[in-house]
Design a protein around this nucleic acid. Structure first.
Length: 438
RNA sequence: CGGGGCGUAGCUCAGCCAGGUAGAGCGCCAGCUUUGGGAGCUGGAUGCCGGAGGUUCGAAUCCUCUCGCCCCGACCA
């Protein structure tokens, strides 16, 4: 992509509406624009990041045996009356009346819809287990939206739902998602720590929040320091017994502010106190919805039993902000390779100069051929302005090509995360970029 | 939903207290110069001063109402 043609409205100054760093940087880097309180448009650069995160989430869900579906955003109030939540949910639910005076709503979550799909289409224990998920926009009319996309009213969420015959099988489904979440956040370049959680309005018995640590996190969290060094398993057999992995991660102390107490039993020096951002939340809630909504299956002996369910959320749009909170410096964003909107910034320091233009065109072709996404800065800005823009938008690699370097047969390769810069030949730069799989 | 703050150029903001021709910096446009960390000079364009009503000879400025946004708290992926 050529920067001269790309819609990337960057800002030199911070808009006054933005308080926290991720919100400021997302506005300045031209990723989003606010439409109204808590509701945003995604511009090309931001959308690329959103899609990259979505894709990683999708791959890990599929790997763990979940299947993607897509449910409606606008739902009928009827189902919610059936589950009993229509009156419980309160003002957070955006209620709409259609032309026939029927009560509708913009979905804040989808337990009712998915349970309805299940009960109408699955009758036998032989069709279990099932795990269905979607990546979709939700709306919760928060009293006070804030922090940009971290706490918007409209947000993109991965929500998944498991259906099992009995509590034991449901627990195994829970473990599968638990492990899938560990892997997902790891791939996103995040250190996410599962913490025992309250189940809130969704209800149930077993629940964990996945919290990433960032100085600007919304709430205080506490955990054993050994949790910070753990990495999830590389290869997982999702058909195998995942309880050991679950135990390994939950045996160390970890608690959010509300659950933290003096009886944590962690030696003074081992307790980490930090700020956290919730990016995922999983629940096992048994028959809370299947009983009132009649989601049952016939068992082997011919009797009818309600299915045991769980639900599993990941705040996809929130993650964009969360990743920035966890990865930035004074100059701007530092994207992890896995979610970067482009892998390489190819900076032509003197657009219009025949030799640098030719060198950049050649590099662009060869980087693209190697499968790397490249944003080429072909504008006639001054070098200083180009560097500032690149550091702001934070692509993992900057390949800087100027006439002075070319005269000496070199280009400059800069790693955004570390700031390391090396003068290397064109060939060696290419070898490095394509070789690292960047 | 309680408390507070702010709406003036694309962005950041001054002007309001004490009414009298709408401003600055950045950005944008043109030209010249410059060319490795958000350059310099010259010239230029840009505003229903959030909206409606009122007071006044005269309102960005005072009064009333209204809409929007932000912050703190209570609540949440």
């Amino acid at each position: 992509m050529r920067l001269s043609r790309y819609f990337l409205p960057t800002l030199k100054e911070t808009p006054s509406e933005a308080e926290i760093v991720s919100h400021r940087l997302m506005l300045r880097a031209g990723m989003i624009r606010q439409h109204t309180s808590g509701i945003y448009s995604w511009l090309p650069l931001g959308l690329r990041v959103l899609r990259a995160i979505e894709q990683i989430v999708r791959e890990e869900q599929d790997r763990a045996g979940a299947q993607e579906i897509l449910m409606p955003t606008v739902q009928s109030a009827e189902l919610w009356r059936e589950s009993g939540r229509y009156d419980d949910y309160g003002k957070e639910m955006l209620r709409i009346v259609d032309r026939h005076e029927r009560d509708m709503l913009y979905g804040p979550t989808h337990e009712e819809v998915v349970t309805d799909i299940f009960r109408k289409n699955i009758q036998s224990y032989r069709d279990l287990p099932k795990n269905l998920y979607q990546i979709h926009w939700k709306f919760r009319d928060e009293v006070r939206p804030r922090f940009g996309v971290m706490r918007g009213r409209e947000f993109l969420m991965k929500d998944g739902y498991s259906f099992d015959l009995d509590p034991l099988a449901a627990r195994r489904a829970y473990y599968r998602m638990f492990v899938a979440y560990l892997r997902t956040f790891h791939r996103l370049g995040l250190k996410a720590i599962p913490m025992a959680a309250d189940t809130g309005p969704i209800g149930g018995s077993l629940s964990h929040e996945f919290i990433i640590l960032a100085e600007t996190g919304e709430s205080a969290v506490f955990c054993h320091k050994d949790l910070l060094d753990k990495t999830p398993p590389q290869n997982v057999d999702y058909d195998g017994d995942l309880e050991p992995i679950f135990k390994e991660w939950t045996s160390l102390y970890a608690a959010t502010d509300e659950k933290h107490g003096p009886d944590h039993g962690v030696p003074e020096g081992d307790l980490v106190s930090a700020r956290g951002i919730e990016v995922g939340h999983i629940f096992n809630f048994g028959t809370k919805y299947s009983v009132p909504m009649g989601a049952t299956v016939t068992t082997q002996d011919g009797s009818s039993v309600p299915v045991h369910m769980g639900s599993y959320g990941i705040g996809v749009s929130r993650l964009v902000g969360g990743i920035i909170e966890a990865s930035h410096d004074d100059a701007g964003i530092i994207w992890p390779d896995s979610v970067a909107p482009f892998q390489v910034a190819l900076v032509n320091l003197k657009a219009g100069d025949a030799q640098t233009d030719a060198a950049c065109a050649d590099l662009e072709t060869r980087l693209a051929a190697a499968g790397l996404s490249v944003l080429i800065d072909d504008t006639d800005e001054r070098p200083g302005a180009k560097f500032a823009t690149q550091d702001l938008i934070g692509l993992p690699w900057q390949l800087i090509v100027g006439p002075k370097g070319l005269a000496r047969g070199v280009v400059e390769l800069k790693r955004r995360a570390t700031g390391e810069r090396h003068e290397v030949t064109v060939e060696s730069a290419l070898a490095h970029l394509t070789g690292t799989g960047a």
